[in-house]
């Protein structure tokens, strides 16, 4: 299984880190548009940029 998009050793810390901040930080933010609302807009954008980075770096899929 060499054609993985990401190895388990890289995937697990990223997965846990993203979910931990997803389950914690928004609950301390103020009740404003730039609070949890903006946070939950930015978090997936940053995560998906990271995902695209992992998907695009393996050119041998092309």
């Amino acid at each position: 299984m060499k054609d993985n998009f990401i190895t388990f050793k890289v995937f697990l810390p990223i997965y846990l880190f993203v979910l931990i901040i997803d389950f914690s930080i928004p609950f301390f933010l103020p009740s404003r548009v730039i609070g949890a609302y903006l946070f939950w807009i930015l978090l997936p954008i940053i995560t998906f940029i990271l995902v695209i980075f992992f998907l695009e770096r393996r050119k041998h899929f092309e």
Binding site: I6, F11, Y15, V18, F23, T47, V51
Partner: peptide, 16 residues
């Protein structure tokens, strides 16, 4: 937040 948590987790699980 609940729906975004689902989406982020799904995309990361798909990646792996």
């Amino acid at each position: 937040g609940f729906e975004i948590t689902y989406l982020i987790s799904t995309v990361l699980l798909l990646l792996y």
